[in-house]
């Protein structure tokens, strides 16, 4: 099953994986991902980060594997959108530190790809 990366991070290097570029905000990426998952595919990475400050990031990348409809992925993506909205109710996106957020986003996708590479033969 080949992989896809949904992202709005222009600087992202997909490390050979096909990238679906989403024009717009972090939340737009979450919405586009949900629309896609509605018709099939499985989340490989959790859509949200592990610390609250990174929710303020202008950019976010999500790793998906093509395939049949996966209920838990749809459920998880809907909860991730709700989780994002909760944190960001009155918060502004932190555009001041865009360069560092782009770098952090790349690091987390690399971390995921490295994890997957270690486990999957393909």
């Amino acid at each position: 099953m080949n992989k896809l990366i949904f992202t709005n991070n222009e600087k992202l290097d997909g490390r050979g994986i096909s990238v679906i570029f989403v024009k717009g905000s972090y939340r737009r990426v979450l919405e586009e991902c949900l629309r896609y998952l509605h018709r099939g595919g499985r989340l490989l990475t959790h859509p949200n980060p592990a610390s609250i400050k990174l929710f303020h990031s202008p950019v976010r990348s999500i790793l998906i594997e093509e395939g049949s409809v996966d209920e838990s992925s749809i459920l998880l993506m809907e909860r991730a959108i709700h989780q994002y909205d909760q944190i960001m109710t009155l918060h502004e996106v932190d555009n001041r530190n865009l360069v560092h957020y782009e770098m952090m986003d790349q690091a987390h996708i690399d971390s995921a790809l490295e994890e997957l590479a270690r486990w999957q033969s393909s």
Partner: peptide, 9 residues
């Protein structure tokens, strides 16, 4: 460890 990938979790 809390990993980024869902399979890892």
């Amino acid at each position: 460890p809390e990993l980024t990938t869902l399979d890892g979790k």
